[in-house]
């Protein structure tokens, strides 16, 4: 469903992402962890078609992002880490905007919008301007909009930032449900417990390179850590990654 091949991004002499190769299968939740500045958001931006890679490619559902970006993007639900939205629209109007852009049929919009607003506890706020929403509410609205057009792939940058505990539980449950329906989820996060709880596989990135990838058990083996705590695994792997050439 998602395939990154030798994905590279350089800014002048600085190599933010370095020959990244990975594949996320249908219905799989892939967690992407790494220290600050490791290249997570740059990778996610290239996957979402926001940033052009210097080399390599991104394929979504077999469609090359560089060659056919519109078609590839139509299959993606994108959730950025910062909830910047059109502040002068109401929540419902923003969903209608998304529905029109992604081609959700008119007759299905009302029921779908109502369902996602209820699901994300925004039903009472649908007619209010987004500028009056809190950070967490904006984040929830972006998530609601991202799944409105039934994407085949969900790309999420730091999904839990700004969410309250109830919303975090709901989002974790939702991601599992979506994966159960065959949607692939690529998620970058700093919240290791979230990655541990819901991801089928986890990739660790440091200094632009994928230094480890696999299930939590695989990572423990690779990091030579006996404890099941992902934090220790992360610290060990990224420390190795930091000294690696």
């Amino acid at each position: 469903m998602i395939e990154l091949t030798n994905l590279t991004k350089t800014y002048g002499a600085f190599r933010a992402v370095d020959r990244l190769n990975l594949r996320v299968e249908r219905g799989e939740i892939f967690g992407f962890i790494g220290p600050n500045g490791a290249g997570k958001t740059t990778t996610i931006k290239m996957m979402g078609g926001i940033l052009a890679p210097t080399a390599g490619s991104v394929a979504v559902c077999g469609i090359d992002m560089q060659a056919d970006p519109e078609n590839a993007k139509r299959r993606i639900g994108f959730i950025p880490d910062r909830p910047y939205l059109y502040e002068k629209l109401t929540g419902t109007e923003f969903l209608k905007f998304t529905a029109d852009v992604y081609g959700v049929p008119e007759e299905r919009f009302s029921s779908k919008a109502e369902a996602v607003l209820t699901q994300f506890a925004l039903a009472d706020w649908g007619q209010e301007l987004i500028e009056s929403y809190s950070h967490g509410m904006k984040q929830r609205l972006i998530m609601a909009a991202a799944i409105l057009h039934d994407p085949e792939v969900l790309i999420v940058d730091e999904p839990m930032v700004g969410l309250d505990p109830l919303a975090i539980i709901m989002v974790k449950k939702l991601f599992r449900e979506l994966a159960g329906r065959g949607i692939s989820i690529f998620m970058s996060t700093h919240t290791l417990t979230v990655a541990e709880d819901i991801c089928d596989r986890i990739g660790v990135i440091a200094r632009g390179r994928l230094i480890a990838s696999g299930t939590t058990a695989d990572l423990q083996r690779e990091a030579n850590v006996s404890t099941s705590d992902l934090e220790a695994v992360f610290l060990n792997l990224t420390a190795q990654g930091a000294v690696a050439p």
């Binding site: 979402g48 078609g49 926001i50 970006p69 519109e70 078609n71 993007k73 139509r74 993606i76 994108f78 950025p80 910062r82 910047y84 939205l85 059109y86 502040e87 852009v101 992604y102 081609g103």
Partner: peptide
Amino acid sequence: EREAFWLVKTSPLS
């Protein structure tokens, strides 16, 4: 479009 320009960049619209 301000910082919501990411919506344009990620949308299936050239």
